[in-house]
Write a protein that binds this DNA or RNA. Structure first.
Lengths: 204, 204
DNA sequence: TTGCTATTTGAACAAATGTTCAGTTAGTTT
DNA sequence: AAACTAACTGAACATTTGTTCAAATAGCAA
């Protein structure tokens, strides 16, 4: 019935976002209640409505922030992009794996909870996902036009590469047998093979 | 309060499974109620408990049946497996894409609803998923041992290939620009490049 | 026709849900 | 010290949830 000692709105907002992200990733949006999230934050459910108009907006803002962070981080990363398409592809692959392994919960939600978004919210997130996918597609098309790649199909190659790269988050463990650097190397190796397919044919 | 005219338990059971599969895939297990499933079946919620002990078991049985169908179908498909590892890999890739595109809802649930399974149910499904993944890993290892593949990493190659193949279900449309056959060819091409990566290096 | 079985209805039950808000206390400003 | 604002509590609200089960009807066998 009272304000808690030491309460700080900014701090609570951050704790709320982190708690909601973790619980949505672990159990799923619809399976987690506002009361559960509140308990994790250390407040009552009613207090959450000081920080979010409703549960749907809470989910949307987590996903939207994740996509914005991803696109912004790539913009910074690619500011000094090399000219060589293979080097740019390498830059993208390393970036994708590194960024995603640092935000496994956010990535998980961004891919798993699309169905729980309202139509309008879905459209916003979908547009940003397509924007990110087009980044890779552009790299692939440039490389193909420059004769550096021999793609099986431009669009499907970008779908396939994104799928395999994002798939890393489904099995990666911090204490696993492979470091992030090693995983980057191995996935780079596989992606090179995938985009250089034509050379593989002539080599056999 | 009465039995419906023309009611047939076997038929209702099949309709229930199909309706639950479609609704779980479209909205998610936790977001769909037994009343919604019942409405889709054309009965009241109480009637569902003649066919399933509870909601969790309904989900589990859908996922379990899907995995059983997948493993059984592969067993039939690979009964006359060619000896050449590349041909066997091709067989697997075609099979995976074809099977998954014929059961998009089932596939979706099998991958998306793991979190909603109880511990015991999860263990059962997880074991079958690993069994399927090992099928591909065995093909890759045999090909590598025979000198036909030059893998970047045996285990990660199988993870990456499964991820990209399964990812097809996230964008495929029946009326899209590509036929299932064409998709198979393109993904085969990409998978070949991925497993022949070493040859690509020496070719450059 | 009678008796039995199968299949369903419809309401009940206990519990949980998202959201609201008057009231209370902590922190800040005057 | 007083006044104001911020941050929370706790209960209420309407609704929904999974599940149960007595009763009713349809289908089938004798």
């Amino acid at each position: 019935m009272a304000r808690k000692s030491g309460s700080d709105g900014k701090k609570t907002a951050q704790v709320l976002r982190a708690a909601a992200t973790r619980l949505f990733a672990q159990y799923g949006y619809a399976a987690v209640s506002m009361r559960q999230i509140a308990a994790e934050v250390g407040v009552q459910a009613g207090a959450l409505y000081l920080y979010t108009p409703d549960k749907q907006t809470l989910l949307f803002q987590i996903m939207d922030r994740h996509m914005d962070d991803l696109l912004t981080a790539w913009q910074g990363e690619s500011a000094d992009s090399p000219a060589d398409p293979m080097a740019r592809l390498e830059q993208f692959v390393r970036f994708h794996i590194r960024f995603h392994l640092q935000r496994v919960d956010g990535v998980f939600i961004a891919y798993m909870e699309l169905r729980n978004l309202s139509k309008e919210n879905f459209a916003v997130i979908e547009a940003k996902r397509r924007q990110y996918e087009r980044l890779l597609e552009a790299i692939l098309q440039d490389g193909s036009a420059a004769g550096r790649f021999e793609l099986c199909d431009s669009k499907l190659s970008s779908y396939a590469i994104i799928a395999m790269l994002t798939g890393v988050t489904t099995w990666y463990r911090d204490d696993g047998r492979l470091s992030v650097e090693k995983i980057e190397e191995i996935y780079l190796c596989m992606v090179r093979g995938l985009v250089m397919q034509g050379s593989a044919k002539t080599g056999s």
